[in-house]
Computed example of a mutant assay.
Amino acid sequence: MALENTSEVSEAHPMKGGDGPNSYAKNSILQRGSVDAAKELLNKAIAEKLDIEIFLPSRTFHIADLGCSTGPNTFLAVENILEALEFKYQSRGLHSQIPDFFVFFNDHTSNDFNMLFKSLPQNRRYYAAGVPGSFYGRVFPNASIHFIYSSTAIQWLSRVPKEVLDTNSPAWNKGRIHYSNSTDEVIRAHETQYSEDMESFLHARAQELVYGGLMLLTFPGRPSGTPHSDASPNVCIQLLGACLMDLVRKGVVSEEKVDSFNLPLYHMSPQELAAVIEQNGCFSIEMTTDLPLQSVDITLSLSQLVASHMRAGMEGIFKQQFGEEILDELFGLYRKKCEEQISTVKSEKPVNFLVVLRRKAD
């Protein structure tokens, strides 16, 4: 059977590679917070929801991190998963049957896998492999994975909805880079794209995950009942769009380039995700909850932290559209706007969520 080809249908916008001052590796402390916040819930999910007896007598346990980027957060997450799994086997009296662990690190083909592999912990207790490809298509063989993990990745769409870049469409998103403060037509286009993408995601995972296997997803989202324009992640992106329009007014960026550019991001509510899961029908929802807010031990100001976080995640996509020469000015301006509007950037409402799914038997 031929492998499914997703390279022609999915856009690739990996995080900033390398280990420089603007790299994801050096500026992913907020994502680290999600990993830390999920640890106790991860332990609970594996302890209560994973039936390891059905995997016996397999001597290898396969784990996949979808959207792993370059580290170091993925290694911390894997260590948390292994600790929980080993405790599970030991608590069942299966000390002699603890399997070898094989971890597959997945991200776009253009991800900095060299940086990832160079950073692999030397004392790791698992075998490791990189698996390139969009997770909106198949990336593993049938029934080959026992535990799937993905943190702060599924908010990225496979592509920008075509309608929002079509000047003849009522959903043309002129003058904006995001849907959240736009018209109903633009919002609906993104909702539709999200639903299609998540159905593709779940369809692929249903084939790759063994029966009884678990999938744990964390993602920044939108609390139920909160307007798109008020959700904290969207407010941060709106500020970035305002900075880009400031550069248009200064003549640094052309208005036409802004009109032909949108960020392929959608911040869903847990209820939206649950609806797609129910429609797919291959998974039971074992847990869904807000991630607890984590205190972050940093020396940077909040505005510096948010600006560095956004640049590490989005430098590549802005560079591709507008060129490298605007990056320092754009994200410098963004940091200043964050300082001016710190109360809107800082939200006490939970904006990160966790969902645990179990693969049903057909």
Rank of each mutant, 00 (worst) to 15 (best):
V139C: 15
V139T: 15
V139K: 02
F140V: 12
P141Y: 07
A143I: 01
I145Y: 03
I145W: 06
F147K: 06
S151C: 12
T152F: 13
T152N: 14
T152S: 13
A153K: 06
I154Y: 02
W156V: 03
W156G: 01
V160F: 05
P161M: 05
K162V: 11
K162W: 07
E163G: 01
L165W: 03
L165P: 00
D166E: 06
D166K: 09
T167G: 04
N168F: 08
S169T: 08
W172V: 12
K174W: 01
K174I: 11
G175C: 09
R176W: 09
I177S: 04
H178A: 14
Y179C: 12
Y179W: 09
S180M: 06
T183Q: 08
V186N: 00
I187Y: 02
R188H: 05
A189M: 07
H190N: 08
Y194P: 03
M198C: 12
M198V: 13
E199Y: 02
E199C: 05
F201P: 04
F201A: 05
L202F: 10
H203Y: 10
A204W: 01
Q207N: 14
E208W: 05
L209K: 04
V210G: 07
Y211H: 14
G212E: 01
L214H: 01
L217K: 00
T218I: 04
F219W: 02
G221Y: 09
R222C: 01
P223Y: 10
P223F: 02
T226H: 11
P227T: 03
H228N: 09
D230S: 14
A231H: 05
P233E: 08
V235S: 02
V235H: 01
V235I: 15
V235T: 12
C236T: 15
C236S: 15
C236V: 15
C236W: 15
C236A: 15
L239V: 14
L240T: 11
G241Y: 13
G241Q: 12
C243G: 06
C243F: 04
L244I: 14
M245R: 14
D246L: 12
D246R: 13
D246I: 00
L247W: 01
L247C: 10
V248R: 08
